[in-house]
Amino acid sequence: MVRIAFLFLLVFSVESYAAIDAYPFPNDELRLRHIALIDELRCPQCLNTNLAGSDSMIAKDLRREVHRLLLEGKTDDEILDYMYQRYGDFILYKPRLQGGTLVLWFGPVFLLLLAFAVLFRLLRGSKALETELSEADSRRLEQLVKRK
């Protein structure tokens, strides 16, 4: 009796687990693309979770939608575009290259170059200071040392 109950539980739990999110795919390529896409798309309801990691209703619906679009033969770009047209910048974890996101893409590079420029100037400045000091003040320095 216990064994049967155990067996029942085992079968039932597997079944219910599978029912959460088991999309049939005709091949592994589509399955992997599905995984990659729901990993890259952000859940619109949540602040920082992707579609794969969220349990919210909208994330479930969108996972199903990605599955449907994949089976329809849509490319990854078409699917990302489909989501973008409905949910905008928010849904893409990798923001697109456009007016508003230029700073996001090139800001860091610009800051790095700026940092190098500042570092370069500082280094040159300190060198110039060093040589100037040794030329102009060396005699005075010697006198001071001698006096003592």
Binding site: Q45, I58, D61, R64, E65, R86, Y87
Partner: peptide
Amino acid sequence: SSGTLAIDLGVYG
């Protein structure tokens, strides 16, 4: 019932 129009509307809640 399956949220298809809601998705087309960009509804998230």
